[in-house]
């Protein structure tokens, strides 16, 4: 039987307890949790907060595709939890949670890493930083592409997309 999946875009604070509880499984010996948080600096500027803009429908489609890809690579039994925050966060706020569980630890580590790296390049999500001097700026990102996913092994590769 295949693993469980939870995919969400949330306006409410994300819960690490909920992520861990969702993937917990008596048949699994391992779980990996990635927590993305807002830090207080970027490119030499002091940040006081971040706002996340999300294209909900396509983001959820992207999360679903990534869960399928993770299972194709590391097994159908993975339980997968992916949740991204939408709205404004203070320093230390949780922007994203990814939890993966599996019978053995190798698959959890790898699938969790794969999912966060792919989200950074493929999910339609944008970040606007708010600085101490009162300015705000949309962060530079990775251009999306209509072509399929680039192959991924243990380490993320440089991706190129030509428009």
């Amino acid at each position: 039987m295949g693993g469980r999946t939870f995919l969400n875009v949330s306006n409410a604070p994300l819960s690490t307890e909920a992520a861990i509880a969702f993937v917990a499984d008596q048949e699994h010996g391992a779980a990996d949790l990635f927590i993305g948080t807002v830090r207080n600096h970027n490119l030499g500027k002091q940040v006081k907060g971040v706002s996340y803009d999300v294209f909900d429908e396509l983001t959820l489609t992207t999360f679903e595709t990534l869960a399928q890809e993770a299972r194709q690579k590391w097994g159908e039994k993975l339980n997968i939890y992916i949740e991204h925050f939408k709205g404004r966060l203070d320093i230390g706020g949780i922007s994203i949670l990814i939890a993966v569980s599996s019978p053995h630890r190798d698959e959890s580590f790898k699938a969790c890493r794969f999912i966060i790296e792919e989200i950074k390049h493929r999910a339609p999500i944008w970040k606007q930083e708010h600085y101490l001097d009162g300015d705000s700026e949309w962060v530079q990102g990775h251009a999306l592409c209509s072509h399929g996913p680039v192959s991924y092994d243990d380490e993320p590769e440089t991706r190129h997309c030509h428009h």
């Binding site: 339609p124 970040k127 962060v139």
Partner: peptide, 30 residues
Amino acid sequence: VLADNQRVLGTDEAITTPLALAILPPVCGG
């Protein structure tokens, strides 16, 4: 890029009907 709710549209894709689309700048989620 331009996208609908399900996918990013190709650069040379022809559009022949009225559609609801989105314009997506380079992304930086996570």
